[in-house]
Simulated scan of single mutants.
Amino acid sequence: MSARTYLNGIEGAWIPTHDRGLMYGDGLFETVLFVDGVAPLWPRHRTRLEAGVARLGFALPPIDALLAVAQQASSGLARAAVRITVTRGVGERGYAPPVPAMPNWIVAASSAPVVAPDWCARGIRVRCCSLRLAAQPLLAGLKHLNRLEQVLARAEWNDAEIAEGLLGDSAGRVIGATAANLFAVRGGRLLTPALDECGVAGVCRAEVLARREVAVGSLTWNELMHADEVFLTSSLRGILPVRGIDAQTFAPGAVTRGLQQEWRALGLMEPADG
């Protein structure tokens, strides 16, 4: 089945070339997993969208229309990855935002990526990226359209055995992965980096925070390398154990396995083999 794309609810329409999302990255996006037409984490996607447009200073299009079109776009796909993009819309040339803004919204659906069973069972190998995320508290946590830092970080390797790259900030703190949030278990405590200066606050991360007692704060590279368990979270891949960071090895533990079971019960991960 070919991908379906909608602009402001109209299938097949084209985004204007002078839309501010294309010109300046002036907008936000969500990548939503639909399972048989239902998005289990939609309330968290909605909350992040509403908070994001409020911080950027323009109105969110009708949220019920966004969801309805996303459901329509996902029809016929057992597991669909639906990207919802909201931009400030079209304005005069230059950085000054139009007042009032007339946002554009784009919905595009395709089959969700298949996660290798071995990744879920044994874990993935990741590397530490040399790129350091810039601090910008006004944008921290948002899933805004400017992903150039992640693009440059992902360009650092082409080894098919490396599934992800870890990113830190200029102060030596671990922030997360190029397309996932990071959790570590040390001495029985579940930890995740604070994202008040940079990084994306994922919906899967928010779900873990709601289900577990988690210490949110500064996490150094040394602390990470001495963790008992490490796992990544993302809306499309769910809970992925990390079995190696560069030369350091890890093994999936009870915390990771427990969360994987909960995610499978919600339909957010494929059932385990066997």
Rank of each mutant, 00 (worst) to 15 (best):
residue 129 C to W: 10
residue 166 L to M: 12
residue 48 R to G: 10
residue 73 A to C: 08
residue 90 V to W: 06
residue 185 V to Y: 10
residue 155 A to V: 02
residue 125 R to M: 07
residue 232 L to Y: 04
residue 170 S to I: 12
residue 6 Y to G: 01
residue 180 A to N: 07
residue 180 A to K: 12
residue 89 G to S: 12
residue 76 G to P: 05
residue 196 D to F: 02
residue 44 R to G: 02
residue 77 L to I: 05
residue 33 L to T: 08
residue 112 A to L: 07
residue 67 L to H: 15
residue 41 L to R: 10
residue 92 E to H: 07
residue 114 V to P: 00
residue 242 V to H: 12
residue 264 R to L: 13
residue 44 R to Y: 04
residue 257 R to C: 08
residue 8 N to W: 14
residue 88 R to S: 14
residue 260 Q to L: 07
residue 176 G to K: 04
residue 98 P to N: 00
residue 41 L to M: 14
residue 231 F to H: 06
residue 187 G to I: 11
residue 230 V to Y: 05
residue 1 M to A: 11
residue 116 A to R: 15
residue 80 A to G: 10
residue 5 T to E: 02
residue 190 L to C: 04
residue 203 V to N: 09
residue 238 G to H: 13
residue 8 N to E: 07
residue 19 D to W: 00
residue 89 G to F: 03
residue 157 W to A: 01
residue 162 I to F: 02
residue 22 L to A: 05
residue 55 R to I: 01
residue 269 M to H: 09
residue 232 L to D: 00
residue 221 W to I: 06
residue 201 A to K: 09
residue 208 V to Q: 00
residue 6 Y to P: 00
residue 202 G to A: 03
residue 81 A to Y: 10
residue 185 V to E: 01
residue 51 A to V: 09
residue 207 E to A: 04
residue 12 G to R: 13
residue 2 S to D: 08
residue 152 L to C: 06
residue 87 T to Q: 05
residue 164 E to C: 08
residue 232 L to E: 00
residue 256 T to K: 09
residue 90 V to N: 09
residue 73 A to F: 04
residue 101 A to R: 11
residue 123 G to E: 05
residue 176 G to H: 03
residue 124 I to S: 07
residue 14 W to A: 13
residue 98 P to G: 12
residue 29 F to A: 09
residue 26 D to G: 07
residue 16 P to I: 02
residue 44 R to A: 14
residue 183 F to Q: 04
residue 259 L to Q: 00
residue 108 A to I: 13
residue 116 A to I: 11
residue 15 I to S: 13
residue 11 E to D: 02
residue 196 D to N: 03
residue 268 L to W: 03
residue 198 C to R: 00
residue 99 V to P: 01
residue 28 L to S: 01
residue 249 T to S: 14
residue 130 S to N: 06
residue 19 D to V: 03
residue 266 L to W: 08
residue 197 E to T: 02
residue 140 A to E: 00
residue 45 H to R: 07
residue 141 G to W: 10
residue 201 A to M: 15
residue 226 H to L: 12
residue 231 F to S: 03
residue 266 L to E: 10
residue 76 G to T: 04
residue 35 V to N: 02
residue 272 A to F: 08
residue 174 V to Y: 04
residue 137 P to L: 02
residue 161 E to C: 11
residue 234 S to E: 01
residue 63 I to K: 05
residue 202 G to H: 02
residue 9 G to A: 12
residue 31 T to E: 07
residue 153 A to G: 04
residue 170 S to R: 15
